[in-house]
Structures are given as structure tokens and as C-alpha cells.
């Protein structure tokens, strides 16, 4: 289920999760489940912003500018992505 995000929300990568960049994409290994996941270019871009500690508001602004997309669309996509990543235990709320 997609959950709404506040602009001040931040997420971090748990210690059991190993991300590796592949070209402009990303492969993620969850050491707890031994499962591998792939992120496409835009997903990998957003992941790098999570890892930098960016807030949701900053991520939306940055992604909208990078991919020339309306901020409302970015927020919707980001909420869906965060839900999927959290369901899989690949990110967790920071702070």
C-alpha cells in the first residue's frame, strides 16, 4: 500500500543492504534474505539521494529538475517506490 510522505521525511539504507551501481542502474543485495533487486536509472538516481540523506522535499525537487517531470508526478512515483522498498526492507526511516 502506498503511504503519503512528508517533505521532511528522510530514509536510510539498513546495514544488511548492499547497493552496487551498475552503469546508471543499481543492484541491491539484502544479506538477510539473500535476495537481489535491480533499480532502473530513475530508481537508482532516487536511491542515491536517499543515501545522501536528502529529504523527500529535496528529492522531489531534484528529480523533477533532472527528468523534467512535474513535481506532483514525482511525489506520486516516489511514494510508490518508497512503499515497495520499505516492504522489502531495503530502506527505513531515518531519525
Amino acid at each position: 500500500m502506498t503511504v503519503g510522505l512528508d517533505d521532511d521525511d528522510r530514509f536510510r539504507v539498513p546495514q544488511n543492504v548492499l547497493p552496487r551501481t551498475v552503469g546508471e542502474e543499481m543492484v541491491i543485495l539484502d544479506l538477510n534474505s539473500d535476495r537481489y533487486f535491480g533499480l532502473n536509472r530513475s530508481g537508482a538516481f532516487i536511491w542515491s539521494l536517499f543515501a545522501d540523506g536528502s529529504t523527500v522535499g529535496a528529492i522531489i525537487s531534484t528529480v523533477a529538475a533532472e527528468f523534467d517531470v512535474a513535481q506532483a508526478d514525482v511525489r506520486s512515483d516516489l511514494e510508490a517506490l518508497v512503499s515497495e522498498l520499505r516492504e522489502r526492507g531495503l530502506i527505513e526511516p531515518a531519525g
Binding site: 542502474e25 543492484v27 543485495l29 544479506l31 537481489y36 535491480g38 533499480l39
Partner: peptide, 24 residues
């Protein structure tokens, strides 16, 4: 895609240290 390709390479790799986070 590069990520899909990476997944196939992992699947087709020989390995023995499957318990080792460093090796993974």
C-alpha cells in the same frame, strides 16, 4: 539492462562462501 545482466552473472557464478557478507 545492466541490473538484469548483473543478476544473471550472480546466478551463474561459482561460490562457496555463501555465509560470508564480505564475499557476497
Amino acid at each position: 539492462s545492466p541490473a538484469e545482466a548483473c543478476g544473471h552473472l550472480v546466478r551463474n557464478s561459482f561460490g562457496i562462501d555463501l555465509w560470508s557478507a564480505d564475499w557476497k
